[in-house]
Design a binder for these strands. Structure first.
Length: 348
DNA sequence: GTCCCGTGTA
DNA sequence: TACACGGGAC
């Protein structure tokens, strides 16, 4: 009984919703920012970023006209930096193609860079009242359990079945409230582990609970083990400044400033890799001793290696895409978070 | 250590 | 459809 499901959730939500900053706005731009910022990100992690971002870029026009470096700076530490680039591009597209107003329909939103099925559904329903689903991981878990959906709900036939059910449940009135209720329930009650079923407003309709196997849904996706990759980075200092390079536009940590270096070749030593990295930016260097360790786990690989002190000729000019960074530069530039931590711990 | 999480690209 | 893309909670 679809309307009973939606009604129960919506009533529960009015009493139990968390008071979160991005729920206190009706501004479609702010809602869009929040939804992109929270992609693959926990609410508590993203919240301070959202508050700062909205102050720094209060409108779609402000964001569209900002330098990319400042947008990345606002994103530093949040991860998946492609989201920042896409959001920036989306703002420009809104100014260019939509007269500066966030498009009001799922289909138009879906065309913007960085806006997929989830985000388009969230913005269309929450900001504009379109009756479309917004199925994030939390909503997917709730529906998987209530309807005992087998398979990995993030892909294939299981995904299509989930989306069909999700679409059929969205109420015509206040679809945004319903969508947020569904996600909030997944986040606070229908949790991945140790769900709080006695507190659930739809426990009477839950197939997984009736079966006594709530935690068996959704089916776990099998994950590949993350390979360990050796890395080496260069610490070149001169007159209280440190050499930073801008990482390339695509790929890992794209667009952030970093110590020169990166992955070490299969038959390469760390020292050789560091000298090679310096040569790649046009500087002849000799490596000294290691001055710090790098251990960082990404979603799909782990970096392990060291930071090496390097010596460059005294007259070395900063090449294209590189900068001798002093204290103000370190404050202003978006920098790879674990490089920033290293530099701060080294009191640079 | 394990688990969680949206979109783009090819 | 497979994989790239970060960080944090537990």
């Amino acid at each position: 009984m679809p309307s009973e499901f939606a009604d129960s959730l919506t009533i529960w939500y009015r009493e139990n919703r968390r008071d979160l900053a991005f729920r206190r706005t009706r501004d479609p731009y702010a809602i869009l920012v929040a939804e992109v910022l929270l992609q693959r990100t926990r609410v508590v992690t993203g919240l301070p970023y959202y508050e700062r971002f909205i102050v720094r870029f209060p409108s779609v026009a402000a964001l569209a006209s900002a330098p990319e470096e400042e947008v990345l700076k606002a994103w530093e530490g949040l991860g998946f930096y492609g989201r920042a680039r896409h959001l920036h591009a989306a703002a420009k597209a809104v100014v260019r193609d939509h007269d500066g107003r966030i498009p009001r329909t799922f289909s138009e939103l879906r065309e913007l860079p960085g806006i997929g099925d989830y985000t388009a559904g969230a913005v269309a329903s929450i900001a504009f009242g379109e009756a479309v689903p917004a199925v994030d991981g939390n909503a997917a878990r709730v529906l998987s359990r209530v309807f005992r959906l087998g398979g990995d709900p993030s892909r294939g036939v299981a995904r299509r079945r989930l989306m069909e059910i999700a679409s059929s449940l969205v109420p015509a009135t206040e679809p945004g409230t319903y969508n947020q209720a569904l996600m909030e329930l997944g986040s606070t009650v229908c949790r991945p582990r140790v769900p709080r079923c006695p507190a659930c407003p739809v426990r009477g309709m839950c197939g997984a609970l009736a079966e006594g196997r709530v935690e068996a849904y959704p089916e776990a996706r099998r994950r590949a083990r993350t390979p360990v990759v050796r890395v080496a980075f260069a610490l070149a200092e001169r007159g209280g400044k440190v050499l930073l390079v801008r990482r390339p536009a695509g790929g890992l940590l794209a667009g952030l400033w970093a110590l020169p270096g990166g992955e070490v070749g299969p038959r390469e030593s760390e020292g050789t890799a560091v000298v090679r990295a310096m040569r790649d930016i046009g500087l002849q260097a000799r490596h000294g001793e290691p001055v710090g360790a790098v251990r960082h786990t990404f979603s799909h690989r782990r970096w392990e290696g060291r930071v090496w002190r390097v010596r460059v000729p005294a007259d070395a000019r900063p090449p294209e895409g590189a900068v001798w960074a002093g204290p103000e530069d370190l404050q202003r530039l978006p920098i790879v978070p674990f490089h920033r931590r290293f530099l701060e711990q080294s009191r640079l």
